[in-house]
Nucleic acid binder design. Structure first.
Length: 176
DNA sequence: GAAATTTGACCATT
DNA sequence: AATGGTCAAATTTC
């Protein structure tokens, strides 16, 4: 087994927010089917494993920053009604933070997973998160967490790190 | 030329 | 009338 290439990329922190969404108390209500909208705060509001199409922008009264409106890119072909808004949080955060508010769950099947990220989950089954290089089909996952203990381990690692929640993930491509 | 974004108009709610 | 959400034509980007 010979390593011939190593890539490192910064892992967007909203994944961490999503994990916390599942494992902190409030996640229970946030992730219920009947929940209509839920929000996260993140410095990286765009990467959440789904493709979005911007359809509007509004200035909000008493807000310094405009609010951007996105809907799922598969709205037309697949009738997916998931939407989100992104608005930069007031204050001089460095890096800036954004409030991302989601409405409706995805009903689409994502055709082109960027890093095959599965964070949608029912409350019954444990969520599955898998990372794979772009364009790689799901059977080439490099990491899969599928049971709760796995997740708790992951969660602890994340929780023990300090708040700038950027994780460097080494992607190692190996030959036989 | 297709697909995504920009941007003012338009609409609904209060 | 003010506010926030959506539409859609024009524009930009790939």
């Amino acid at each position: 087994m010979e390593i011939y290439n190593t890539t490192s990329f910064r892992f967007p922190p909203n994944i961490v927010s999503w994990l916390l969404c599942f494992y902190l108390k409030e996640r229970k209500s946030h992730c219920r089917e009947e929940q209509k909208s839920w929000s996260i705060v993140t410095p990286a509001p765009h990467f959440d494993g789904h493709q979005w199409r911007k359809y509007g922008e509004k200035h909000i009264s008493n807000s310094e920053f405009p609010r951007n409106y996105y809907r799922c890119s598969h709205f037309k072909e697949q009738g997916c009604h998931a939407t989100k808004t992104i608005q930069q949080k007031e204050g001089n955060d460095e890096p800036p933070k954004y409030i991302v508010t989601y409405k409706m769950h995805h009903t689409c099947k994502s055709m082109v997973p960027i890093y095959s990220l599965f964070l949608e989950s029912t409350t019954q089954s444990a969520p599955i998160i898998s990372f794979a290089p772009g364009n790689t089909p799901h059977n080439k996952q490099t990491e899969t967490y599928k049971d709760e203990n796995d997740f708790k381990k992951h969660d602890q690692i994340i929780s023990s790190s300090n708040v700038p929640m950027l994780i460097d993930l080494n992607l190692t491509i190996e030959s036989k």
